[in-house]
Simulated assay, not measured.
Amino acid sequence: MARPTQFDRESALDKATKLFWTQGYHATSLSMLLERMGIARSSFYASFVDKRSLFIECLQRFGQRTVAEIPADNDDAPLSVIPRFFQATLLDVEAEQLQKGCMLVNSVLELANTDPTLSELSAAQLSVVQNIFEQALSAAAKQGKFTSTLTPSEIAEQLMIINQGLRVQSRKGIDNKQLWASFLTSLKLLGLEQAANFSTP
Protein backbone atom coordinates (compact mmCIF):
# COMPACT_ATOMS: atom_id res chain seq x y z
CA MET A 1 0.00 0.00 0.00
CA ALA A 2 1.43 3.38 -1.04
CA ARG A 3 2.31 5.78 1.76
CA PRO A 4 0.67 9.24 1.76
CA THR A 5 2.78 11.96 0.20
CA GLN A 6 4.68 14.05 2.75
CA PHE A 7 3.65 17.68 3.06
CA ASP A 8 4.18 20.76 5.22
CA ARG A 9 1.49 20.32 7.86
CA GLU A 10 1.79 23.83 9.29
CA SER A 11 1.44 25.40 5.87
CA ALA A 12 -1.55 23.18 5.08
CA LEU A 13 -3.19 24.22 8.37
CA ASP A 14 -2.66 27.89 7.57
CA LYS A 15 -4.31 27.46 4.18
CA ALA A 16 -7.24 25.53 5.68
CA THR A 17 -7.72 28.16 8.39
CA LYS A 18 -7.87 30.95 5.82
CA LEU A 19 -10.39 29.01 3.75
CA PHE A 20 -12.67 28.29 6.72
CA TRP A 21 -12.28 31.91 7.82
CA THR A 22 -13.38 33.18 4.42
CA GLN A 23 -16.00 30.58 3.48
CA GLY A 24 -17.35 29.40 6.81
CA TYR A 25 -17.61 25.80 7.95
CA HIS A 26 -20.60 24.57 5.97
CA ALA A 27 -19.65 26.22 2.67
CA THR A 28 -16.16 24.70 2.75
CA SER A 29 -16.18 21.31 1.10
CA LEU A 30 -13.57 18.59 1.40
CA SER A 31 -12.64 18.99 -2.26
CA MET A 32 -12.06 22.73 -1.70
CA LEU A 33 -9.84 21.95 1.27
CA LEU A 34 -7.80 19.38 -0.63
CA GLU A 35 -7.24 21.81 -3.49
CA ARG A 36 -6.33 24.74 -1.26
CA MET A 37 -4.10 22.70 1.03
CA GLY A 38 -2.44 20.99 -1.91
CA ILE A 39 -2.62 17.50 -0.45
CA ALA A 40 -4.02 14.13 -1.48
CA ARG A 41 -7.14 12.68 0.11
CA SER A 42 -5.11 9.89 1.72
CA SER A 43 -2.74 12.42 3.32
CA PHE A 44 -5.69 14.44 4.56
CA TYR A 45 -7.34 11.51 6.33
CA ALA A 46 -4.04 10.29 7.73
CA SER A 47 -3.14 13.68 9.20
CA PHE A 48 -6.47 15.38 9.98
CA VAL A 49 -9.02 12.52 10.18
CA ASP A 50 -11.97 14.49 8.78
CA LYS A 51 -13.27 17.98 8.02
CA ARG A 52 -14.71 18.49 11.50
CA SER A 53 -11.47 17.55 13.26
CA LEU A 54 -9.53 19.84 10.93
CA PHE A 55 -11.93 22.69 11.64
CA ILE A 56 -11.49 22.27 15.39
CA GLU A 57 -7.73 22.41 14.99
CA CYS A 58 -8.04 25.53 12.84
CA LEU A 59 -10.31 27.17 15.42
CA GLN A 60 -7.79 26.50 18.15
CA ARG A 61 -5.00 27.80 15.94
CA PHE A 62 -6.93 30.98 15.20
CA GLY A 63 -7.73 31.39 18.88
CA GLN A 64 -4.08 31.09 19.86
CA ARG A 65 -3.10 33.69 17.31
CA THR A 66 -5.85 36.01 18.50
CA VAL A 67 -4.59 35.77 22.08
CA ALA A 68 -1.07 36.43 20.78
CA GLU A 69 -2.33 39.84 19.57
CA ILE A 70 -2.82 40.85 23.20
CA PRO A 71 0.26 42.73 24.43
CA ALA A 72 2.25 41.49 27.38
CA ASP A 73 1.09 42.56 30.83
CA ASN A 74 1.97 46.13 31.69
CA ASP A 75 2.01 46.40 35.48
CA ASP A 76 2.10 50.20 35.33
CA ALA A 77 -0.77 50.52 32.86
CA PRO A 78 -2.90 47.36 32.89
CA LEU A 79 -5.76 49.03 31.00
CA SER A 80 -3.49 49.47 27.96
CA VAL A 81 -4.11 45.81 27.12
CA ILE A 82 -7.62 46.63 25.94
CA PRO A 83 -7.06 49.37 23.31
CA ARG A 84 -3.86 47.77 22.08
CA PHE A 85 -5.68 44.53 21.35
CA PHE A 86 -8.33 46.37 19.35
CA GLN A 87 -5.69 48.46 17.61
CA ALA A 88 -3.82 45.33 16.53
CA THR A 89 -6.97 43.65 15.21
CA LEU A 90 -8.81 46.67 13.76
CA LEU A 91 -6.21 49.20 12.63
CA ASP A 92 -3.05 47.23 12.05
CA VAL A 93 -4.50 44.77 9.52
CA GLU A 94 -5.04 44.82 5.78
CA ALA A 95 -8.52 45.74 4.53
CA GLU A 96 -8.96 42.28 3.00
CA GLN A 97 -8.35 40.60 6.34
CA LEU A 98 -10.53 43.07 8.22
CA GLN A 99 -13.47 42.37 5.92
CA LYS A 100 -13.36 38.69 6.77
CA GLY A 101 -14.28 39.55 10.34
CA CYS A 102 -13.14 37.21 13.11
CA MET A 103 -13.21 33.49 12.43
CA LEU A 104 -14.30 32.81 16.01
CA VAL A 105 -17.17 35.30 15.91
CA ASN A 106 -18.15 34.11 12.43
CA SER A 107 -18.27 30.53 13.66
CA VAL A 108 -20.35 31.33 16.74
CA LEU A 109 -22.96 32.98 14.52
CA GLU A 110 -22.90 30.40 11.74
CA LEU A 111 -22.99 27.28 13.90
CA ALA A 112 -25.16 28.30 16.87
CA ASN A 113 -28.21 26.52 15.46
CA THR A 114 -26.60 23.89 13.26
CA ASP A 115 -23.70 22.67 15.39
CA PRO A 116 -23.85 23.97 18.97
CA THR A 117 -20.72 22.05 19.98
CA LEU A 118 -18.55 23.83 17.42
CA SER A 119 -20.24 27.13 18.23
CA GLU A 120 -19.47 26.66 21.93
CA LEU A 121 -15.86 25.78 21.11
CA SER A 122 -15.56 29.06 19.20
CA ALA A 123 -17.12 30.94 22.11
CA ALA A 124 -14.67 29.28 24.51
CA GLN A 125 -11.76 30.65 22.47
CA LEU A 126 -13.28 34.13 22.72
CA SER A 127 -13.66 33.66 26.47
CA VAL A 128 -9.89 33.44 26.78
CA VAL A 129 -9.63 37.03 25.49
CA GLN A 130 -12.48 38.09 27.77
CA ASN A 131 -10.68 36.65 30.78
CA ILE A 132 -7.54 38.59 29.94
CA PHE A 133 -9.59 41.80 29.77
CA GLU A 134 -11.10 40.97 33.14
CA GLN A 135 -7.67 40.44 34.67
CA ALA A 136 -6.47 43.79 33.31
CA LEU A 137 -9.53 45.57 34.69
CA SER A 138 -9.11 43.90 38.08
CA ALA A 139 -5.45 44.95 38.21
CA ALA A 140 -6.35 48.54 37.33
CA ALA A 141 -9.07 48.61 39.99
CA LYS A 142 -6.67 47.33 42.65
CA GLN A 143 -4.21 50.07 41.71
CA GLY A 144 -6.94 52.69 42.04
CA LYS A 145 -6.63 53.53 38.34
CA PHE A 146 -10.18 52.57 37.52
CA THR A 147 -13.49 52.68 39.38
CA SER A 148 -16.95 51.66 38.23
CA THR A 149 -20.30 50.50 39.51
CA LEU A 150 -19.80 47.49 37.23
CA THR A 151 -17.49 44.62 38.14
CA PRO A 152 -14.42 43.81 36.01
CA SER A 153 -16.26 40.66 34.90
CA GLU A 154 -19.28 42.64 33.71
CA ILE A 155 -17.17 45.18 31.85
CA ALA A 156 -15.07 42.45 30.21
CA GLU A 157 -18.28 40.80 29.03
CA GLN A 158 -19.46 44.08 27.52
CA LEU A 159 -16.12 44.56 25.80
CA MET A 160 -16.50 41.19 24.12
CA ILE A 161 -20.03 42.04 23.01
CA ILE A 162 -18.60 45.22 21.51
CA ASN A 163 -15.83 43.17 19.92
CA GLN A 164 -18.33 40.85 18.27
CA GLY A 165 -20.36 43.78 16.97
CA LEU A 166 -17.28 45.41 15.47
CA ARG A 167 -16.35 42.16 13.70
CA VAL A 168 -19.81 41.92 12.18
CA GLN A 169 -19.55 45.55 11.06
CA SER A 170 -16.15 44.87 9.52
CA ARG A 171 -17.70 42.15 7.35
CA LYS A 172 -20.08 44.77 6.01
CA GLY A 173 -17.10 46.70 4.71
CA ILE A 174 -17.11 49.46 7.31
CA ASP A 175 -13.84 51.41 7.22
CA ASN A 176 -11.42 50.59 10.02
CA LYS A 177 -11.28 54.22 11.09
CA GLN A 178 -15.05 54.19 11.59
CA LEU A 179 -14.76 50.97 13.54
CA TRP A 180 -12.04 52.51 15.68
CA ALA A 181 -14.20 55.57 16.36
CA SER A 182 -17.02 53.28 17.46
CA PHE A 183 -14.64 51.45 19.76
CA LEU A 184 -13.48 54.69 21.40
CA THR A 185 -17.10 55.73 21.92
CA SER A 186 -17.77 52.38 23.56
CA LEU A 187 -14.85 52.94 25.94
CA LYS A 188 -16.41 56.22 27.03
CA LEU A 189 -19.80 54.61 27.58
CA LEU A 190 -18.13 52.01 29.81
CA GLY A 191 -16.27 54.68 31.76
CA LEU A 192 -12.94 53.65 30.29
CA GLU A 193 -11.95 57.01 28.81
CA GLN A 194 -8.49 56.70 30.35
CA ALA A 195 -7.88 53.50 28.37
CA ALA A 196 -8.15 55.49 25.15
CA ASN A 197 -5.04 57.37 26.18
CA PHE A 198 -3.00 54.24 25.52
CA SER A 199 -4.23 53.95 21.93
CA THR A 200 -2.62 55.15 18.74
CA PRO A 201 -5.15 56.78 16.37
Rank of each mutant, 00 (worst) to 15 (best):
A2R: 13
T5H: 14
D8I: 02
R9H: 01
E10H: 09
S11W: 04
L13W: 02
A16E: 06
T17S: 15
K18N: 12
K18L: 13
T22H: 14
G24E: 03
Y25A: 11
A27C: 10
L30V: 10
S31E: 15
E35Y: 06
E35Q: 12
G38V: 03
I39N: 07
F44Q: 00
Y45H: 11
Y45A: 01
Y45I: 03
A46S: 11
F48A: 06
V49T: 15
S53E: 10
L54I: 08
I56G: 14
I56Y: 09
L59V: 05
Q60T: 14
E69G: 01
E69A: 12
I70A: 13
D75C: 07
D76L: 10
D76K: 13
P78K: 01
P78E: 00
S80A: 14
P83T: 05
P83R: 00
F85Q: 02
F86P: 03
Q87D: 12
Q87R: 14
A88W: 03
L91A: 03
D92V: 01
V93R: 07
V93K: 04
E94A: 10
E94D: 14
E94Q: 09
E96A: 10
Q97W: 14
Q99S: 11
K100S: 12
C102R: 02
L104A: 03
V105D: 07
N106L: 02
S107P: 03
S107N: 07
V108N: 04
A112M: 14
T114D: 15
D115K: 07
T117Y: 15
L118T: 13
L118H: 11
L121N: 15
L121M: 15
A124P: 10
A124K: 15
E134W: 01
A136M: 05
A139V: 00
Q143E: 07
G144H: 00
F146S: 01
S148I: 01
L150Y: 10
P152C: 02
S153Y: 12
I155N: 00
A156P: 08
E157V: 09
E157T: 12
E157R: 12
E157D: 13
E157K: 06
Q158I: 04
M160I: 08
I162Q: 05
N163P: 02
L166N: 05
R167H: 11
S170K: 05
R171H: 02
R171C: 09
G173W: 05
G173F: 07
I174T: 09
W180R: 00
S182A: 15
S182P: 05
L184A: 14
T185F: 14
S186L: 03
Q194C: 10
A195Y: 07
N197G: 15
T200P: 05
T200R: 05
P201W: 01
